[in-house]
Amino acid sequence: MFEFEEYLSLIDDPDHEKRMRELLEWVVQTFPNLKTRVAWNQPMFTDHDTFIIAFSIAKKHIAVAPEGIVIEKFSEELKQAKYSAGKQMFRIGFDQDVNHDLLKRIIQFNIDDKKETTTFWRK
């Protein structure tokens, strides 16, 4: 988590910082093989130098970016979880619970789907 400390220290709202810290720690503990880094001002996780997922803080939510193909694949489950989604990301409101099961399946999908990928982003 050392890589994320500077990012976390810049979050103004202590409750938002705590929530983001808990989420990032959960990913680190659940997927210990993923590498951590901050790029494009976002904490992100990679596997064999390919992008898996990134998180960023906003005024009313945490943005979760797993790439567009993942948003499409999990669109119904994201709707059921009441997460709003865009083309490349979805939002977990600060007033919403984190659906850890769904998030785990999203991350695992990316790991499995990109195991042969040799570029950072999908082509």
Rank of each mutant, 00 (worst) to 15 (best):
F2A: 10
E3Q: 04
E3Y: 01
E3I: 00
E5M: 07
E6L: 12
L8K: 08
S9N: 13
S9I: 03
L10M: 13
L10I: 02
I11G: 06
I11D: 13
D12Y: 03
D13C: 09
P14M: 04
D15I: 09
D15V: 08
D15E: 14
D15L: 14
E17D: 07
E17S: 15
E17K: 14
E17H: 12
E17L: 10
K18L: 12
R19S: 15
R21A: 12
E22P: 00
L24T: 04
L24S: 02
V27M: 10
V27W: 06
V27D: 05
P32G: 14
L34D: 07
L34I: 07
L34W: 06
T36C: 14
R37D: 00
R37V: 00
R37W: 00
A39Y: 00
W40Q: 09
P43D: 01
M44A: 08
D49C: 06
D49T: 09
T50I: 10
I52W: 02
I53N: 01
A54C: 07
F55S: 04
S56V: 12
S56T: 15
S56H: 12
I57G: 11
A58R: 05
A58V: 03
K59Y: 06
H61Q: 11
H61V: 08
I62A: 05
A63Q: 10
V64M: 11
P66N: 11
E67S: 10
E67Q: 15
V70R: 06
V70E: 02
V70K: 04
E72D: 15
K73Q: 10
S75D: 13
E76P: 05
E76Y: 08
E77F: 05
E77K: 13
L78G: 03
K79C: 05
A81S: 15
K82H: 11
Y83K: 04
S84A: 15
A85M: 13
A85Q: 14
A85F: 12
A85P: 00
M89K: 09
M89H: 12
F90E: 08
I92L: 05
I92V: 11
G93S: 15
F94D: 11
F94T: 07
D95G: 10
Q96H: 10
D97S: 09
V98G: 08
V98P: 04
H100N: 12
H100T: 10
L103M: 11
L103R: 01
L103Y: 01
K104R: 12
R105C: 02
I106W: 04
I107S: 01
Q108N: 11
F109E: 12
F109A: 06
N110W: 02
D112C: 04
D112L: 08
D113G: 01
K114C: 09
K114Y: 03
K115S: 09
E116D: 15
T117K: 04
T118M: 07
T119F: 03
F120L: 08
F120G: 01
W121D: 01
W121A: 01
R122G: 01
R122N: 10
R122A: 09
R122H: 08
R122D: 01
K123D: 06
K123V: 00
